Amino acid sequence: MRQRGQVWVAAGVTLVGVPAGLALTGGNVDSAITGALAVFLAGVVLAVRRWPVSALLVSVWAVLAFRAADLVGAGWVWPATAAFVGAMVDGRQRWAIAVGALALWWGFVWDYFVQMNTFEFAVGRVGAEALWLAAVLAVTHAYLSTRRWQEEVAARLRQSLTEQELDARRRRAEERVDVARDLHDAVSHTLAVVGVHLNVALDAFDDEPEEARDAVRLAQDVRGRAMTDLKALVDVLRRDPGTSEPAYGLESLEGLTGQVSAAGVRVRLVEVGERADVPAPVATAVHRVVQESLTNTVRHAGAEEATVTLHYAPESVTVEIVDDGGGGLTGSEGHGIMGMRERVAALGGTLVAGDGPDGGFRVRASIPVTV
């Protein structure tokens, strides 16, 4: 959807820019001629997305025909700029360079051999066109390289986070096995010792009441120590109840935003209120929402800056991620947003995602803090 909008913008710029550019560069200013060329080239631009090479060839043919008819003078290549950019974006860099080189060569031949202008005049006019075309191709190539680099960084970031999750889950599974073993040993040992002391107390209850009381006291001491050990083991098991995935704390967000900033998108982390004791499931959900939102920003939004805001309240934690890109919901939600919404809903919270109030894209989640 974004690419379709960009094509329409390029067509609009071509429609308005061709007459204005011809007037500025000393070309034909007849409204009928310039209007016809502008409408024709704008229509061709609309076909760039589906037929990039054909649109490029037709556009160049049109401007060369106008040049041969002496309807344009200097600046005769630039009306086909959108077609060159479209071919580059579609991955047809070689076509764009080859067609541009042939067009420039034709321009030199026309000025020098056909129009019989001086060599210096022909080289100067073609040189100006060559500089413009080279600048357009270079800027487009730089933009595409930057986007590829950001996508690669986003992919590496996602892969790194996945590997961290797998490693954390493995460690958590090993930890649970250890806890289960310790729990079994503690319960078995405690029951055995308590059983021995209770048997002693039962045997000595009538004949030696003092010994029976001592045995009961020892059983109570063992029971107290066992309860302490069991509580510690249960606390480990309840770090993130209901799931085997690793629990992330809110302090991990700084490292996450730092990784995204390395991908070329400046990320600002803002915390409002005092950070309270947020339960592990809520902290993990906040981490996941921020992680998925920033990953989508790097991969799809074309943003330069994003802001992550955390608002702590006694009853809830609210997280909002806003970027200045052009991303938005188009049709059905993606798996990432659906996953975030389900995760937040499982904790009794709500999540909304869509266009921000000042443009860009916004994800906002509010999760209740249960005590």
Rank of each mutant, 00 (worst) to 15 (best):
L253S: 01
V7D: 15
V123W: 14
L144A: 08
R275Y: 03
H184P: 06
V58Q: 06
V60M: 11
A10D: 15
V139H: 12
D185E: 10
V298P: 01
D277R: 05
D203A: 13
G360Q: 05
V290T: 00
A83V: 10
A247I: 10
V272E: 15
A101G: 13
R170I: 05
S316P: 04
V45C: 07
G349C: 06
R239K: 07
R364H: 13
T146E: 12
P241Q: 14
A263G: 11
G73W: 13
L347C: 06
D323H: 09
R364S: 09
G91E: 12
V236S: 11
L329G: 13
G124E: 14
F119R: 10
V153S: 02
E174W: 02
E274H: 13
A262V: 10
A20K: 05
M1S: 08
G359M: 11
P52C: 13
G359C: 07
R67W: 15
A168D: 08
F205K: 04
A42I: 02
R364L: 08
T81Q: 13
A135K: 02
G17D: 11
V39I: 06
I367Q: 01
R4A: 15
V72E: 06
V265E: 01
G328W: 05
V29G: 05
R238S: 14
Y248E: 08
V272D: 15
W95N: 06
Q259H: 11
R299K: 04
R217P: 00
I33K: 03
A263T: 02
A128W: 09
H287Q: 08
P241F: 07
G334H: 06
M116G: 07
W78G: 02
G21Q: 10
V89L: 11
A285Q: 03
V289Y: 04
D178W: 04
N117L: 10
V289T: 03
